[in-house]
């Protein structure tokens, strides 16, 4: 690259300049840069600035230095509780969801007459998203006289548990909801699986490798970029999960399902502490950023890119 640009005399046409990867790269990411500088960076910096203030939305912010951060770490028990609940949620829901998504994607990757139908059916739960209808539905299903208990009773387990009313089970209703809505990850796995060249399998078949063997030797490594993507995304989404907790449980019982973002939101709007809310947001960004950073660093060890071979 460098040599090219140093080569003198030859007058380059605009086309040639544009074709240099250095320039082309910026041309391609230009939309992102416009969006980032136009609409994101300023609000982002402002929210970072807010995190050092005491700020009721309706009033003028006043600078209080690191006070928000200090309060958060030293004297806000609810902060730690919400952090713990979110971490618990992420630790269980993300792997379960991904495993579920991968298994179903493997089942549905074959093109049979019905696979389109099955895909649609498995994707359906993700379509209904987290609307108010889902909230009502979920509360009804896990109610003490709900469908879940009815099912348990029909199999002979006399269950009258109020699933949403126990500190140890309430969070699991939300985890199950997350796992149930595995459709997005499944879809991404499906596209990932579709990208694996058939020829690889064919040559493996010739070599006499069986199904499990092929899965471990071909599917899994070829799928690592997709797994990596799903993992990063699900972790980010997991920490940012909001609606489930907000509309279904509102943190009850006893803050056992109070997600970090919900507590942040309560502070920012209901309690008139937008500054504190912003500080909480940035703590989360740092934390999730750190995890993402570590995952990106670990990429070299386990993610396999065809283009980098």
């Amino acid at each position: 690259m460098k040599k090219n640009s140093m080569s003198p005399k030859r007058k380059r046409t605009i086309g040639q300049i544009m074709n240099r990867k250095e320039v082309a790269g910026y041309v391609f990411i230009l939309p992102f840069l416009i969006g980032f500088f136009g609409f994101i960076i300023l609000p982002m910096l402002v929210s970072f600035g807010f995190s050092f203030t005491r700020f009721n939305i309706l009033k003028t912010p006043s600078f209080i230095g690191l006070q928000n951060y200090i309060t958060m770490f030293t004297s806000d028990a609810t902060f730690w509780k919400s952090f713990g609940a979110t971490l618990y949620y992420v630790v269980f829901s993300v792997p379960l969801r991904l495993i579920m998504a991968l298994i179903v994607a493997m089942l549905l990757v074959k093109s049979t007459k019905l696979s389109g139908f099955y895909r649609a059916v498995y994707y359906l739960p993700s379509i209904i998203g987290s609307s108010v209808a889902v909230a009502i539905l979920w509360k009804r299903m896990f109610a003490s006289n709900g469908v879940i208990n009815a099912m348990l009773q029909s199999t002979g387990i006399p269950s009258t548990i109020a699933w949403l009313g126990r500190t140890d089970t309430a969070i699991w209703t939300l985890i199950i909801l997350a796992v149930w809505q595995f459709g997005s990850s499944m879809l991404i796995f499906l596209s990932g699986l579709k990208q694996i060249p058939v020829s690889l399998y064919e040559s493996a078949k010739v070599d006499g490798a069986n199904g499990i063997h092929r899965f471990i030797k071909i599917t899994l490594p070829m799928l690592t970029p997709t797994i990596f993507f799903n993992l990063i995304n699900q972790i980010i989404n997991g920490f940012m999960a909001f609606t489930q907790s907000y509309i279904i449980t509102q943190g009850a019982p006893r803050d056992s399902t109070l997600f970090y973002t919900v507590y942040m939101y309560q502070n920012s709007f209901a309690y008139g502490k937008l500054g504190y809310g912003c500080a909480m947001a940035w703590v989360m960004v740092m934390f999730v950023g750190l995890i993402t950073f570590i995952l990106f660093k670990s990429q070299k060890r386990w993610v396999y890119y065809e283009a980098e071979r």
């Binding site: 300023l42 609000p43 929210s47 973002t261 937008l274 809310g277």
Partner: peptide, 17 residues
């Protein structure tokens, strides 16, 4: 920067935006 923007909850940049 792109990843960072993905991690930032909408609620906190809502007001400035």
């Amino acid at each position: 920067c792109m990843l960072l923007a993905m991690m930032l909850p909408f609620q906190v940049i809502m007001i400035p935006q």
